[in-house]
Design a protein around this nucleic acid. Sequence first.
DNA 1: TTAAAATATAAACACTGTTTATTAAATTTG
DNA 2: CAAATTTAATAAACAGTGTTTATATTTTAA
Lengths: 204, 204
Amino acid sequence: MGISERKERDKQEMRTKIIDAAISMFLTEGYEKTSIRNIAEKIEYSPATIYLYYKDKDELLYEVQRQAFEKLELEFHEKVTSADPMERLEQLCYTYVRFGKNNKEMYDLMFMMKAPMNCVEEDETWNNNTDSFDFLVKCLSDCMENNLLRFDNVMTAALSVWSMGHGLVSLDVSCRFKAMQMDETSINIAIEEAIGQYLKLIKA
Amino acid sequence: MGISERKERDKQEMRTKIIDAAISMFLTEGYEKTSIRNIAEKIEYSPATIYLYYKDKDELLYEVQRQAFEKLELEFHEKVTSADPMERLEQLCYTYVRFGKNNKEMYDLMFMMKAPMNCVEEDETWNNNTDSFDFLVKCLSDCMENNLLRFDNVMTAALSVWSMGHGLVSLDVSCRFKAMQMDETSINIAIEEAIGQYLKLIKA
DNA sequence: TTAAAATATAAACACTGTTTATTAAATTTG
DNA sequence: CAAATTTAATAAACAGTGTTTATATTTTAA
């Protein structure tokens, strides 16, 4: 029965073909400005064909998000290498913010896009990013077990650290730091300073 | 020459009619899902008429943002009333976060929408929100002049405080706290805790 | 080789923001 | 007051969107 296996391979190949085109276009043009027709044109298939492999445009986004979170997690495992818990936390924070700044469009798809989150729904779909989040929680627990942090609740700690990191990145990604009359390099410096400062503040 | 004045009044009235419809629809349905045709239908005019009063859909958004920032500033002046600088900072932080949580769709238009910021352009358009930001800077300066804060640079301080506040609100608005397996009330409590915690941390 | 199943697509539907040519109304001028 | 002109509103069209359906085309099974 090699035939049905080859068919399955072909199907996966096609899905990959589509998602690769989608990724590259989402990242260069953004989600909204990328149309199914454009993706279809890029892979030289008709628009309707895409709907044989993905339910709708949102499902393309979910898959892209999945891969993006994989990439973030990989970055964590590559860059958060210290044995010292506190040093690990520092590496984690800098890695997170730099990941956002180096992959702005991707960061937008992961953490800022509101459209397909659909606050209401129950969603199996959004079991994403828990890995990365768990990574943070683990790191914070390690610090707090050794009384290295001025937090008394791990979840509040995680919420705080994440919010600080996300605040810095997302205001930058959405260009809101324009409100501060500073040039780009000054802002970049200030952002790194802010992280360092924050890390000092939360140290016990 | 009362005629041209009445015409000017009529024109303003029409602009108000349009923007009021736009606001209410942006806030209930969101910017993307609100169409010019829907707005036109609501005010019982043809879609093309709107273009006689506003250049395009983005210009509607800019006007809505302007009014939203006015509302935030008003809230600041209403709720940030203490004479004590440090107490003022606390009031400011809580006011900001609660404003975001009570006006999620509006907060999205103000601080999260990427579309019409157009990072590149020079924009006179985006002289918004500087008032609110200046309010924060003033508040922080007052604190720091009295050595009440563990910051040594006002701009870094402003960047940090804003990022923390924005991080908390925007992750909530965009439903990303779903990654933490917590119910809504727990998250709301944790957010308020995080602010209190942060304020303690930055106190000298 | 023919019948059946899987795959791809053209065409259509109901939308979108925006522009243009046309019509209707209000105002100014002779 | 009537005619000419400016102003205001719109219908219709353009080029685009996500998505569905009915129609080929190709591949597999009998």
